[in-house]
Design a protein around this nucleic acid. Structure first.
Length: 550
RNA sequence: UGGGGAGUCGCCAAGUUGGUUAAGGCACCGGAUUUUGAUUCCGGCAUUCGUAGGUUCGAGUCCUACCUCCCCAGCCA
């Protein structure tokens, strides 16, 4: 299927890059994906990853995977490993992962340079005083009494801070900019704090750690990042980003051209919550079964659910990038997954809500093998043998005692085709045994010449009772029932249902990473922690059901 | 309240220097094909660009005022 690709549309970031390349400011581009290893990656990160790596690929540049590990209290190796694994799963080759902590020495030297040139000072106010003196939206801040400390004294104090001679919280290094700036981020932001915490990589080497605000621009510059893409909430930070890098370049520590920070809107999805606080709550309070629960909007959960990297890439392209706050309908993500899965998932038959069907004129004890294509649109995928017999499981909703208008499946007197097998006529339903009664029509076996003379609208799947593989199937629904879910009060109590299904025998050997389509149902994968159960990734579109639901 | 952003079809999103009928995708609605009420295919889907004025032969694009929404006062990122 090589249908025309949608024209890759322009966006404001590409335009900036195009201009920078055209003007000769950069010969090639470098982007970066800079997670803090303090949690698990989620759908929002997938957008950022696709954006950064996608741009690098498009322009023949490169994208660094860099851990922004400047706050040892919140970061752990476990998260580093999980992030690495998920980026790889998404299909991006990050080469060697980089760490902000590898630049701690450089950052320290840069801080001394700033102090030496009068651009930074050690502030010995308490945190409360600092906050008080910062002012507010309507009032300018007040200068710290330490703001005019002598350079040498600043240097001495800062070194003592580094050497562990001062207690946590007693001093802080601040940039010396403008306490009256209308942009609060420019009111002498904090650069370094004293924090006696063991870092997951540098151990106890340091007891002072740089703040994000200070560290991030330096990380970008050191790596030669050309375009530093981040989310909208950092817009107010950009003046400081430029201020810092400018000072360090003036001081000879950094080379121009300097990286440019560009902000874009983060993605929001209906029925999904992405804030770390709320995700933690879901896990901690047991509303889901862990961070990789298939209902979680984490990449680990997505993988287990059967979502695919290709689906995420499609999603990223489809939602685009801009500065307007986007709230994407969750169905867009689902549709992206369907689009990819439709191409790669072999078809199988599975009855999820079984009711017995008996073909009364089919010989007792007789069995036949039916030839069933693995993908009707892809004959080269071959066929498989599926056993057929007198007693079958069919879907309960494929029979109606009194059919609603437009219903063309089984009801007394109607004929349907048992997919890839025979055409049968419904003769009734036996209440005592909960069995749908049918008789097979002569000469109607699928694949034979006679089969085509029967024109039936209904076409239902089945599984032989005798040969059925019984397995559990998890049916997942959205975790939140409100489209703009805020919290637990919007929880969907039925987000997970487990059913005992009857599967065609070939499903006994399902691979855990291989998607299959249960025909007329949706896409499923064997669960990664329990291969005998299947997870529903996403259902098929069902215009009949949606049109007939209340 | 000061500062920084954003407002184009139900949801995204092109539209850059003002110039014929406002891209495209998703959704939706028709219709065709179909042994998945799936897929695929074909057709339809904004006299209008947050609002109100103004400039102009001509404005989503320029000017003015206003409205709405988001972000910022961590020694978090």
């Amino acid at each position: 299927m090589n249908k025309p690709q949608p024209p890759s549309t322009s966006n404001f970031i590409k335009q900036i890059i195009d201009a920078d390349l055209a003007s000769g400011k950069h010969k090639s581009i470098v982007t970066r994906f800079p997670p803090e290893p303090n949690g698990y990656l989620h759908f929002g990160h997938a957008k950022s990853i696709a954006l950064n790596y996608g741009l690098a690929q498009l322009y023949g540049g490169k994208c660094n995977l860099r851990f922004d590990d400047t706050n040892p209290e919140k970061e752990e190796t476990e998260y580093v490993e999980s992030i690495l694994e998920m980026v790889k799963w998404l299909g991006y080759d990050y080469g060697t992962a980089l760490y902000a902590s590898d630049y701690f020495d450089f950052m320290y030297r840069a801080a001394e340079l700033l102090i030496s040139e009068g651009h930074a000072y050690v502030d010995s106010q308490s945190a409360e005083q600092v906050q008080l003196n910062r002012g507010s939206f309507s009032e300018p801040g007040k200068n710290s009494p330490d703001r005019d400390r002598k350079i040498d004294d600043n240097l001495t104090l800062f070194r003592e801070m580094r050497d562990g001679q001062h207690a946590d919280g007693t001093h802080v290094l601040r940039a010396r900019i403008d306490m009256a700036s209308p942009n609060i981020n420019m009111r002498d932001p904090t650069l370094y704090r004293i924090k006696r915490a063991t870092h997951h990589r540098t151990g106890d080497k340091w007891c002072i750690y740089p703040m994000y605000t200070y560290a991030h621009p330096i990380e970008d510059a050191v790596e030669g990042v050309t375009h530093s893409l981040c989310t909208l909430e950092f817009e107010d930070q950009r003046p400081f980003y430029d201020w810092l890098l400018g000072k360090l370049a003036d001081g000879g520590l950094l080379k121009r051209p300097l990286p440019q920070q560009i902000e874009f809107a983060r993605v929001n999805l209906t029925y999904v919550v992405l804030s770390k606080r709320k995700l933690i709550q879901l896990v901690a309070e047991g509303h889901v079964d862990g961070w990789d629960d298939p209902r979680m909007p984490t990449l680990a959960g997505a993988r287990r659910r059967g979502y695919t990297p290709e689906g995420f890439k499609l999603f990223a392209e489809r939602i685009g990038v801009s500065k307007a706050n986007q709230v994407i309908e969750f169905s867009v993500l689902e549709d992206c997954m369907r689009e990819h899965l439709n191409e790669v998932a072999p078809r199988r038959m599975a009855v999820l809500d079984p009711v017995k069907l008996v073909i009364e004129n089919y010989p007792q004890g007789q069995e036949e093998m039916m030839e069933v294509p693995n993908h009707p649109q892809k004959p080269d995928w071959g066929k498989r043998q599926v056993p057929f017999a007198r007693e079958l499981w069919i879907e309960r909703e494929d029979y109606q005692e009194v059919p609603v208008k437009g219903y063309f499946r089984l009801f007394p007197g109607n004929t349907v085709r048992l997919r890839y097998a025979y055409v049968v006529k419904c003769i009734g339903y036996d209440k005592a045994t909960d069995t749908v009664r049918c008789e097979v029509l002569a000469d109607s076996r699928s694949g034979t010449d006679g089969a085509n003379k029967y024109k039936v609208k209904g076409n239902i799947h089945w599984v032989s009772v005798k040969h059925a593989h019984e397995a559990h199937v998890h049916l997942y629904d959205r975790v939140f029932k409100e489209s703009l879910a805020q919290g637990l009060e919007h929880l969907n109590p039925d987000s997970k249902r487990t059913i005992a299904a009857r599967l065609e025998p070939s499903l006994r050997e399902a691979r855990q990473d291989a998607a299959v389509q249960f025909e007329r149902h949706g896409y499923f994968v064997a669960d990664s922690s329990d291969a005998s159960t299947f997870n529903r990734t996403v259902s098929l579109r069902d215009t009949w059901a949606t049109a007939n639901s209340p």
